[in-house]
Write a protein that binds this DNA or RNA. Structure first.
Lengths: 129, 129
DNA sequence: TTTCGCCGTTTACAGCTGTAGTCAGATCGA
DNA sequence: TCGATCTGACTACAGCTGTAAACGGCGAAA
């Protein structure tokens, strides 16, 4: 397996993830614009957003590009990679790496509605081909 | 129903979860026995296990029963409930509550092997009936 | 009865996380 | 030119987490 010379996984916290979602949806953005998108929903203030952005930059998950006197922020870490990594980590930690066990759990907890089931079936058919 | 032990979900950390897994597998156990099961694998020492057990008791996830001069520990929180809750939380947080998106992600990351797929198909057939 | 060892409890402490205040420098408008 | 702003940087701080040492009581062995 790829022992990745790349960057260490560098965990992203939940608050940081909220910032990433904003940037994944639209970028590059200035700090103030990120705040517009997220401060209301989470009850944060500008300083909070700035701190989180700075931490993300320090972790290499977000890049900056100067724009006059301010910075524009762009995600470096890709959404797919992040979600994939988190999902696998979770399946690993909670279900011993067996995705089927996760599926069984969700089914058991009735967390799957008919649409979910239909879509998962479609995905499986696709995988098979 | 029973009076709310579950009003507040009372998050369980990863280290605490390792302890819970030991107790779910076998209980009741004394602290020393828990350590036997987990100290080697995680490189922990007795004090660490004791701290984690104490925190779990404080959170109401584990109950104690006196056994001579020591305590025996038994899980109160059930494994199914814990896994279900964690799974749903994760699907909520990362995939906007759409389990199918999680599966698409796992499929995309090639985290599903043939056995997983076969088992999920079997579960789907079961659900259908 | 005195001491030793085991057990749970208390205390410790550094790193991460959530949340935010303050500050110094750049810049735009007057 | 000079202050009002805006921006990122630095600082702060409490709570949670991982990890563990120190303490104090109680029963067993001597």
């Amino acid at each position: 397996m790829t022992e990745s010379l790349d960057q260490a996984p560098e965990r992203i916290s939940e608050a940081e993830h909220a910032i990433m979602e904003v940037l994944w949806a639209r970028h590059p953005l200035a700090a103030a614009e990120v705040c517009e998108d997220v401060c209301g929903a989470r009850g944060w203030s500008m300083p909070t957003v700035k701190t989180l952005l700075a931490r993300l930059v320090a972790k290499g998950a977000v890049a900056t590009e100067p724009d006059g006197r301010r910075f524009l922020y762009t995600p470096v870490l890709e959404r797919e990679a992040y979600l994939g990594g988190e999902s696998r980590r979770m399946v690993e930690r909670l279900f011993g790496g067996r995705p089927a066990a996760l599926f069984a759990q969700l089914a058991d907890a009735e967390a799957l509605n008919n649409d979910d089931i239909a879509e998962i079936e479609r995905l499986l058919r696709e995988l098979r081909s």
